[in-house]
């Protein structure tokens, strides 16, 4: 079950994510293979290898799912078959 705070690793590359927002039963894949806390390495789907970048937040179109990439990788992250997009965050002036 996906829940906020959960850390998941890619089975096809170095990528790691942290779940920020998710629903029960959501299915997250990286490079076409399900992400897990300790996945066994697997072969990637070459069509889903556009990469993910540390520090970027990824969301689905409806913004019901959001993850933070905490380690960059070669795979791209999909949710229920759709590629997640980077979320534009409004840049705020530093206040601390």
């Amino acid at each position: 079950m996906l829940k906020p705070g959960l850390r998941l690793k890619s089975a096809v590359c170095e990528a790691e994510i942290m779940v920020i927002k998710a629903n029960d039963g959501d299915d997250l894949t990286c490079g076409g293979v399900a992400m897990a806390e300790a996945p066994e390495s697997a072969d990637a789907n070459p069509d889903q290898m556009n990469g993910c970048v540390i520090g970027k937040r990824y969301v689905n179109e409806a913004e019901t799912v959001e993850v933070l990439c905490v380690k960059s990788g070669d795979g791209s992250i999909y949710y229920n078959g759709d590629e997640l997009m980077t979320k534009d965050t409004k840049k705020l002036p530093s206040s601390d």
């Binding site: 906020p4 920020i20 540390i54 520090g55 933070l68 965050t89 206040s95």
Partner: peptide, 14 residues
């Protein structure tokens, strides 16, 4: 959860 929300909501990584 409070501190992580604050930082993710107000600071851009790197």
């Amino acid at each position: 959860e409070h501190l992580v929300s604050y930082i993710l909501g107000s600071v851009e990584f790197m």
